[in-house]
Each structure stands twice: as structure tokens, then as C-alpha cells.
Design a protein around this nucleic acid. Sequence first.
RNA 1: GGUCCGGUGGCAGAGUGGUGAUGCAGCGGACUGCAAAUCCGUGAAUGUGGGUUCGAUUCCCGCCCGGACCUCCA
Length: 452
Amino acid sequence: MPRLSLHDSKSRKTVAFTPLDPENVRVYYCGPTVYDLAHIGNLRAMVTADVLVRLLRHLYPRVTYVRNITDVDDKINARARENNEPISALTARTIRDFHDDLAAVAILPPDIEPRATHHIEQMQRMIRELIDNGHAYEAGGHVLFSVADYPDYGELSGRSADDLMAGARVEVADYKRAPGDFVLWKPSDADTPGWDSPWGRGRPGWHIECSAMSYHYLGESFDIHGGGSDLLFPHHENERAQSMCCHPHGRFANHWVHNAMLLVDGEKMSKSLGNFLTVRDVLRDTPAEALRLLLLRAQYRSVLNFTRDGLDDARQTLDRFYRALAVLPDAQAADTTPPPDSFVAALCEDLNTPAALAEMHAMADRALAGDVQGARDLRAAGHLIGLLGSTPDVWFRGDAQVDGAKIQALIDERLAARKTRDFARADAIRDELAQQGIVLEDGPGGTTWRKA
RNA sequence: GGUCCGGUGGCAGAGUGGUGAUGCAGCGGACUGCAAAUCCGUGAAUGUGGGUUCGAUUCCCGCCCGGACCUCCA
């Protein structure tokens, strides 16, 4: 079995992955703040996590994958006010949409999906401990983490305290001892969600939830913590500082995984540029599997440029793969073929999905040459990374908005016309079907049809 | 301004201190009544200037260009 190498953001090196407990690999990923539909940038992080967890499950007997939901946040409060709806309605709907979108692109659910609002007690306990051991202080109704009290602060993101001061955008608040100090707990007014606490009615700061919930479900040391590279600072740096100060004998995350950002047509996705794409926007006119494949065509640490052409390419690649699977006599039959070692080995090199896809092309070559084992290998490889979960029939013909019998009648009529060398009629039939989005293919085994 | 990451053929995108994967597109051919699909063949790339080395796309430095982050964006 190939061994997994994984890039670690903290050491900035690709290192051999060694689980703390090989019987139970523990992974924590930052999930969504539920105030709006997931966009394709969010999706990239979720797909990266999904591939990583699928691979870990292939390599190890058990994986515990925790992905949180942030359901208390000022953006949520603001959006609920804008929409004039209760916060609980907004978060419930957004969570449902998020689950639907992820399921559409074959992302498996995490083992545990804790919600911040269900873990206020754990957060308060942690904040109390941080105050007790001198790493946090109360000021102006807030509880703040004192950055100066954690010598390793900045180690994860590779910044020094001086660097942080150099940035002119640090929020200076008069109740902070140092500008870099960040909020653990903040006061809520009567119109804002809040919980009673020793520091008054209030709500948690952003970072504390991940520290509290990862500790609660995975312990003071766990294997992998991941998210988008934009979370490296401040979110993950702050999580780490809190956790290490609260549990000084633990290591918090042993290994940090961050995926690079996604561009749309070469530019950062933003609402003002008008290139902001939700998962739903894309899925309106693209098969979900093509979107997933597009995200896997670049290695997760490379910036990925999302384009319409790229999506079309991905779709074509899937055409080829499903054509290759069509050589299987029993496209749906259960089959225990393991994914080939060369394929797993590619994934084990820091999730090198482009190299893994190149392996799949080689398998497709074999399958298209008539090698049934090649097709089995291809299917097994695809399944490992959440692809090829459909069948050629469904991929090419869909769940039928068309009348198959009618198409077959036309195919028969065309065949008769061709026999009498009436090619004008034969081509007219093909054109007619093409108008309806149906493509005919004359193969050695007869004529078949598919959606355009 | 600070920190970090990256610049590979027309496009997408890997790897590597010693003849530069893979896919799409292109070109030529086979198959086909014509297509589609498939197959065979083929042209085409390491931003720039130095350094280290027998040899650099790979390692080091400068420059240019792009991107991310710098208090709540995956």
C-alpha cells in the first residue's frame, strides 16, 4: 500500500503523514458560515477535504471526520435582518441548501457536524480556563486573547508580531491591550443573539468555536486540520493559540492542510466584479460531476482558474471515461476490484489529482481497446475520488425527458433508408434528432443515441 | 508597506539535477455513404538576468509579472 505524503502548512514542507493513532485518524475541517448559498470557492475546500478523507479511509481502518457549521456570526445576524426573517430560519435553510449542494457533487457527509450554537458551554469553559491561566482578559465587556502571552503566536502562518503591526488594517480598539489581541467573547445587545456568561450576556468570537469543538470531539491533539488558505491567518493562527494555551500538553493539529484559492476567468471571485458563482449557478446547466472533475484537475495547492472552457473540457473527459465504462458487460454490478496502485500512489503524493487523472486516462485507453479489467480499474479509481458514480446509460441519456421508443423508431427508419442508399432521408432523420439534442452514433454494433 | 505562494506548448495542467506526463485544441492518416466515436502518426513549452554544477526547467540570488493573506472571505 502506498504511503501518504502531505504538505504541512506549518512546516511548509511535504512530509510523510503519520497518524497519531493509526486505528483512528482524526480530521477537522472548517465548514461554512451559514448565511448564504455555498459558492464554488467554498466547494473547492469541501472537495479537497472529501478527497483527502476518502483516501484516508482507503489507507486506514477508521477515520473520524469533523466539519463544523458556524451558525452564530455577525454576517448571519445582518443577513437575517436584511431578509426580515428569524435567524433560525436563515441558518436552517442555508444548512439544508449546503447539504444539498455538497451531495450533488458527491461529497460524503462528515462523521460529526457540530454546530457552534450547540457548543456554547464548551466554548465558555475554554474561555474561563484561558482567563484563569492568564492568557485572556476581560475588558469593556469583551474577553480578549492576549497575543503577547503566547510566544509561538505567528508560527503557523509565518508571521512575526512586527509583521502584524506593519499591516495598517489591524482594528484598534481602546479596550485591547495590544492591537493583535482578538475577541473570545463579546457582548450582545437585546436584539442580538446572546447567551448568559460570567462576562455578561454575549456571544462567542469567531475562532473559539473550532478550538472548543475540535477538543470536544477529537481531543487536545489530532491529525489534520484543514481549510482554505485564507483561513491560515488569522483564523487558524488564533485557533491554535487558544488551543495550545488551554491545552499546553497537546499539539492541537499535527498537520495543517490548506487549499489554494479559486479564480473565475482569471480574477478573484467577487460580487462587485459580477463573477460570483454559487454552486447552484453552475449546476443549473452543467452536470455536477463535471464541476467536481474540474476542481480535481488542478492540485489542491495550486490556484485554480475556473472557466466555462474548463467546465466543457471536464465534461468531455467524463464522456470519454463513461464510454470506456460502457465496455463493462454489467455496468451496475457490484465489483470488488481495488483501485490500481499507480493511481493510489499518485493521490498519495500530496493528493496529486492531476497525476491520478492521467492514470485514469491510461485505464480508459485500455478499456476502449476492449480490456474489461481496464474498465473495472477505471471505475474503481473513479469511485475512490468520488467520480464515475453513475452509469454510461444515465450519463449519456439522462433520466429520459425523451421518448426512447420514438427515437428507436427513427433509428430503424434511418437504417432502412441507408440500406436503400437513400442518404438524404437518413441525414434528414439525423438532423431532425440533432435539433432535439439527440446525437446518433453508428458503431460496429449498430446505431446508438445520446444527449448532445 | 509586510509575509507567503507561483510563473511549463494555443489552452488546461503534472513531474524531474541528465533525451519535459496527461487532457483539450491543431495538423496528417485509418475507419465511415457522410458524420460521431475510436485508433495511428505529428508539430508545439520551462518569464528574465546572473550564480552553483560536467550538466538547471528543477538548487541559490536579483529583476519582471501574477496571486493569496495582513481581525472575522474556502
